[in-house]
Design a protein around this nucleic acid. Sequence first.
DNA 1: ATTACTATTCTACGAGTAT
DNA 2: TATACTCGTAGAATAGTAA
Lengths: 240, 240
Amino acid sequence: MATTQEMPSETLRASRPSDPVSPLEKEALKQIALLGGIMEQVELNSSEFASLLATSQQTASRRILELVEEGLVERDLGVRKQRLKITPQGLEVLKAEHAAYQRIFELSETVHLTGRVRSGVGEGQYYMSQDGYVRQFRAKMGFTPYPGTLNVELSGPEVNKLRLLKARPAVVIERFQTEERTFGGVHAWPARISGRACAAILPNRTHYTRVIEVIAPEHLRSSLSLKDDDPVELEVEVRD
Amino acid sequence: MATTQEMPSETLRASRPSDPVSPLEKEALKQIALLGGIMEQVELNSSEFASLLATSQQTASRRILELVEEGLVERDLGVRKQRLKITPQGLEVLKAEHAAYQRIFELSETVHLTGRVRSGVGEGQYYMSQDGYVRQFRAKMGFTPYPGTLNVELSGPEVNKLRLLKARPAVVIERFQTEERTFGGVHAWPARISGRACAAILPNRTHYTRVIEVIAPEHLRSSLSLKDDDPVELEVEVRD
DNA sequence: ATTACTATTCTACGAGTAT
DNA sequence: TATACTCGTAGAATAGTAA
């Protein structure tokens, strides 16, 4: 499980670190929720539950036991039908699942990237000291960049999300020349890192990188106390 | 089997038999989608995929094969990493799942009930001919009810959803008296049945019924060509 | 390096049934 | 009626590798 799920700490329960909930259990939880199990108790015998889950009565029964065992569902075992209600922990599982689907069909145009802090070879500072970049960032991104970049290496599959980014319109930072050399253009997207406004940038025509650079009005490493290999989440804003 | 039919029309649903997609496969689809597999191809080797799914490389590989087999994912098997993209059918699966979670968290203020048409003993016509009811419905629901009700028997677990309904504010139709007898009050909620405006009604203090009655400005049985035991979907509007 | 076959392990399903 | 136990077994997951 590489992705760090949203963890709203409103119900700080004494529950264990919420060991992985299997897809089968999520499906079961979802069915209970669809019947109103978040708001009210739901009367549901194991045979009915079985047909909702397309499985046998025995398996449905066992599934309920699992859910109860994991604290995701509370049960009143009446004489006739059992009554089920989703617990706050169960609700968190559902919310996380819902959030995942919200991201997939996101209306709020954000790409969530997770990666780790890497140290570059200090070029970030050199580049972001160039007046040609500084003036463009100030004009187009609305802040004066701290002279340095935070390198974020995307881990494994996360790299795919760069394709989503590149497909969206970016703020174009133009190439420019000094007396010594030429500095290439970059694409930039407004972003947030741990809540701080920043910009995610990629040099033009970089195709196979797994590193994205972050610039900000402040020195992120110190203001966020970041060390190499620290995990970070980057929320990049994209629009059409 | 693998005939991928392009499906340009949104409304023309995938008429494919679409054998049940298991929760495990849905989870896999979801992970691909989170990496951008709806918009773009996603580079994902089976080991990376395995860790996303918290399973082994072999199982991840097999899962991809299943998804391809079922036409939910398209694959380019390159030399290095395979590239995956979710097909229109796969997208439908994800949309359905998303819709389920949307319902759970009631961003749509609608309770969806499914059931079957039942014939009452003709009391519906008797009641809905009473001026005391007719005038109240006209005033409070905005239409003159056809003299008769459509009985919808909720099947099995659907009955639980009535509890959701009862917990929401309803239009209150008051009890009234004639010279012969007293007619009890009912609760009503605006609703739609096969797109037609109607109202779902429940007598006050009915607790253990599995039948909900539907009234409308028209004779639903004929205008919707409904026979006994026909399945119907009822979308009841609820507000706070 | 990949993917995915075959063989093996073992989980989890469902039949039968106790409660 | 229910739920849920034991237990034999099908099929899913993994190990070991081939390609």
